[in-house]
Amino acid sequence: MSVVARHDVKEDITQHEISALKTRFNLADAHTHQDQSITQRQIVERLPELWYRAQSRSQYQSEQEFIQAFFSFHGQEHALKRHDEIYLVYAASIAMHITATYLRKRNMSVGLIEPCFDNLHDLLKHMEVPLIALDESLFQSSANVYAKLQTAAANVDAIFLVDPNNPTGSSMFAKGADTFVEVARYCKDHGKLLILDFCFAAFFKIAGGSRFDAYAILDDIGTQYIIMEDTGKTWPLQDTKCATIMSSQAINADIYSIVTSVLLNVSPFILNVVTQYIRDSSEDDFESVRCVLEVNRTAARHHLEGDFLSYVLPMVETSVAWFEILREGVTADDLQAYLMGFEVYVLPGKYFYWSQPQAGQKYIRLALARKPEEFEQAVKTIALALEHYHD
């Protein structure tokens, strides 16, 4: 088989996102591609200053400044009591790789939420971690969640959840912390490790809400945990980013030994830049990010909702839109291939349903973090294409 032929067959979402970078309207990856706000442009103008500032300070100072800014901004003050045990890596996938390594070393099995972004499943699969699917509906209400997990998660050593979930916006925190508390209690009582991907958690604040202090809740209950957070889906930084990984104290030493086997540090220059963006959003209450997403979400619904596509209302609005395909006999693969003919790239839902891809064939995902004028053109193009589907 030729190299070209192999590339025509996509094995995961990331391979689709790489191809989408070549198209006119890339609505595939959830990375931030919108313009800078006025105050963010002022940060860009200060890049030489930030470069020399990073050079003149210690690595530890840059790290702690970022950690203080990030966790305080997100209301996760309890974690700061152990600020030296918050480890920084240059991408969320590195934090996930560290987590998968820990699970493999301990021969642990995992119940992984479904649907979810497929690289979580793929990293665990490549590490040969045994997996079962836990439907996200289990975690949408505190009613009976403890009892349901006694059956659904009885035979796994760890529960791995994404909150808010990518792509659906489902969340344990949408109506308060009760559901999360029940999940944490179950894990404590039954000796399960709780793994949390909070890489979309900024969207609680972007949507105008606030975050509960998850670290305080977990430590108060006594649950063993690993938590990952990230800046990469929030600020328009051309993939300049930092992710964090933190664990409960009992397993911190084991996690630390894996972290140090992977990397020494994140660039202090990057930490300085990202810290400035966090402070900027603190001052404008996320308005620069919120405005773009609201405008684009409204445009997507206005142009695309109808007898072909239906917007799936999320529990928490994030930077992606999840649409159900209503047209009989049309799969996500069909629709994606058709739209590529119009130079629009969307993601088919099948990859998010990692244990049952067919269940995802009735969904597509659109990324919203784009320049509004370009996004408007993209959804108008999709709408026009749908009018002529199979004409």
Rank of each mutant, 00 (worst) to 15 (best):
M1P: 07
A5S: 13
I13W: 01
T14Y: 15
E17I: 10
K22N: 13
A54F: 05
Q55H: 14
F66W: 01
I67F: 05
Q68H: 13
F71T: 00
S72V: 06
F73S: 10
H97Y: 13
T99F: 09
H121V: 04
M127D: 14
E128S: 10
I132W: 04
E136Q: 07
L138S: 03
S142M: 10
S142Y: 09
T151H: 15
A158N: 03
N165Y: 01
G169A: 03
S170A: 15
A174P: 04
E182A: 03
H190S: 08
H190I: 07
G191V: 04
L193K: 02
I195C: 02
G209I: 08
R211E: 08
I217C: 07
I217Q: 05
I227D: 03
T234W: 05
T234C: 09
Q238E: 14
D254K: 07
V266F: 08
F269D: 00
F269H: 07
T275S: 06
Q276R: 00
Y277L: 11
R279G: 00
S281H: 08
S288M: 06
C291D: 14
D307I: 13
V312P: 05
L313T: 12
L313M: 12
E317C: 06
R327D: 02
G329M: 11
V330W: 07
A332G: 15
Y338W: 15
V344I: 12
L347N: 07
F352V: 05
F352H: 01
R365F: 02
P372F: 05
E376H: 15
V379M: 00
H388A: 12
